[in-house]
Write a protein that binds this DNA or RNA. Structure first.
Lengths: 206, 206
DNA sequence: TATTTTATACCAACCAGTTGGTATAAATTC
DNA sequence: GAATTTATACCAACTGGTTGGTATAAAATA
């Protein structure tokens, strides 16, 4: 352990993640990582037996954080309302609350980064990403199924596809935000997603 | 020119683009490109003075194709209706028509790929991507401005942000489609986008 | 004293890019 | 119209530098 109490392994992963979101995995050399983390090569390979193992660790950590966000915000939404529609609207709102705080363009998503370099990674690493996306489908898709039982949607839509739209809003907005260097894009697009859900299930005016 | 009439330069760019969408730019070696294109290294560097120049050419070609899609489909939509709302709905519908034909997951967008490796490219290359995104904002955003003049939106939204949502739907859906290997996701998400526009500007039921 | 980290040296494989040259066909000269 | 030049397209072999990864011995930490 380094003097300051933080784990060296975490420092390596933090440095690597930041570099990867800027330059991609292939272009992020081990030399660049150890320089950014302020350690030496021996230390890197003491903690990770290969660069591929670092990729797996990074994607596992990212998936855990992702899962934590999903479960935490869904749990909070469920305490605030019993109505599945309100729960989903609150759920999306909790993300928006966080995202409007952004002052710099969102650094991006490791899943999207790895997605466009997919051929570099082994099946185990790719499976972690795949499963993380499926978890949103199951959890959020399940909520939409429940909404369908109570509210007839104004248009014919699939629960799974509505759940996918959350991932789409995040991933798409990250790319626009990064490219145009505009932090507000992500919150804006999540707001459109919430608006859509609201309009889809709003009771017909009379 | 090779005897078969197809341009060698185009063959190089086609091979490179396919490889880059699978493995990223950094991991796509010139050796891999020339093998896929069936040429030698000398030929590659006869057509492109560097790998960076290839990146610029690729992104320029992609931007031109992107612009062509935007202008062509917008022009077709304008011939089919004079109402800006109907034009936008038809415009999105024309993309959906193309995308429902997909039998394999969409190969991805070069802009998104380069976005997650942005540090590797010079300002000229990045500017091409930036300008392509701004063109959607201007053209589609302008349409939404016109819609606002005629139809009051049910919720407070910005024209620019609604235009961004098209890019977001594409880019986000590409990532989900690629990751889960499901071709239908892109058309589905574009349909949600069209639904949203429809619901936003639908006349209040009475 | 077992674990973690530093420092330095090293390697085979791979990388982008260069070299010196060939083949061909159209344009130019005589 | 034969000889020469120019321009385009291509190639096999090579170069210097970078890559991920290893080795080792000593030092610092817990």
């Amino acid at each position: 352990m380094p003097r300051d109490g933080t784990s060296t392994k975490t420092a390596i992963m933090d440095a690597a993640e930041r570099l990867i979101l800027d330059r991609g995995f292939a272009a992020t050399s081990v030399d660049a990582i150890i320089e950014a983390a302020g350690i030496t090569k021996g230390t890197f390979f003491y903690h990770f037996k290969s660069k591929a193992e670092l990729a797996l660790s990074l994607v596992q950590r990212f998936a855990e954080a992702d899962r934590a966000h999903l479960e935490d915000k869904m749990a909070r939404a469920e305490t605030l309302s019993r109505d599945p529609l309100q729960q989903v609207l609150i759920f999306i709102g909790l993300f928006i609350e966080d995202l409007v705080q952004l002052t710099q363009p969102y650094p991006g998503c490791l899943f999207a980064s790895f997605c466009y370099e997919a051929q570099l990674f082994d099946t185990e690493t790719l499976k972690v990403i795949d499963e993380a996306m499926w978890e949103w489908r199951r959890d959020l898709g399940g909520k939409f199924e429940k909404i369908f039982e109570r509210y007839p949607p104004r248009l014919e839509v699939e629960a799974r596809s509505l759940a996918d739209m959350a991932t789409v809003a995040f991933e798409g907005a990250f790319i626009v935000s990064k490219t145009l260097k505009e932090p507000q894009v992500v919150a804006e697009q999540l707001t459109h997603y919430r608006n859509y859900v609201e309009l889809l299930f709003a009771p017909a005016e009379s």
